[in-house]
Design a protein around this nucleic acid. Sequence first.
DNA 1: ATGGGTGCAAATGCTTTGCAAGTAC
DNA 2: GTACTTGCAAAGCATTTGCACCCAT
Lengths: 160, 160
Amino acid sequence: MLSKEDLFKEYLDSKKLKFTAERQAILDRVFANYKHFEADELLVDLRQNKLKISKATIYRTLSLLVKCGLLREVIFGERHTHYEPVYGHEHHDHMVCNDCGMIIEFVENRIERLQDEVCKKNNFEPESHRLQIQGLCAVCRKKDIGALQITGKKFPSVEV
Amino acid sequence: MLSKEDLFKEYLDSKKLKFTAERQAILDRVFANYKHFEADELLVDLRQNKLKISKATIYRTLSLLVKCGLLREVIFGERHTHYEPVYGHEHHDHMVCNDCGMIIEFVENRIERLQDEVCKKNNFEPESHRLQIQGLCAVCRKKDIGALQITGKKFPSVEV
DNA sequence: ATGGGTGCAAATGCTTTGCAAGTAC
DNA sequence: GTACTTGCAAAGCATTTGCACCCAT
């Protein structure tokens, strides 16, 4: 299997793009930390590593990494995009707590299989997918049940 | 079961908000057409129906409709939000074609059931979810396979 | 008269882009 | 040498917000 660097290089080559120091640095930092991140966090991380790369270049490079399949975009319902490494990590989906924002990752192969089935049925060729469950995590759930009992509210207090 | 209007009124009441002519109009138009829409499309639709309601009010009202569960937000990976009616429509998920943008809706109860199972396992209380499969629809698939054969490309031409 | 509602225009905040100068191949 | 790249600042765009005026109760 190609290393992530080789894969990136091959993609760049195929588009007649260049493997520059900036792209190298971003690739490195993105995979140095596991977990989701947003563009701004990457900027900070780069600065902390004495790498001065402009926001524009960050956005441009992230877009390339998504296109070649090394990253995927995850949107948690906020106005900005999160990214997460794909290479070397098992595919998973997310549960997002509406109260505290906690993110739980989960793997459920049976869901994946059913998706493939649905795609086949519709003659659709899947490339990627995202499944996201919004709700309340165990902690906030306890908190919220208490609150609802006290206030007698009918609609939960989900102020997202 | 409450009508959508009653449900909205009850929600507004519970928050000490008022059921104004604008909110009425938006509720009506949103449910007059089935299918997803974005804020701007709703604005046009309102204008065509001789209803002059400002963008600000549209956004404010859509947000209320989402909060009371009559609408849900669907994000197709573009920078703007799509909404779709929940009330009176069976829950479904989406396949989005990366090439032509076509949207296929599908219902798969077995996936829903597995989701519930995963939530239970994590002591997570689901409120909503979205599952979205990106890929190529039958038509674009044929187109693309042809193109790949001709150009010998290794990476698909997904310029989203 | 009071608390919420509306429209307008300005502000926000993430992301993209035009441009001039730099750099990889 | 010739594209492709970069950084900067400006532009874009969907969405939100401040504010003055309006309306329903």
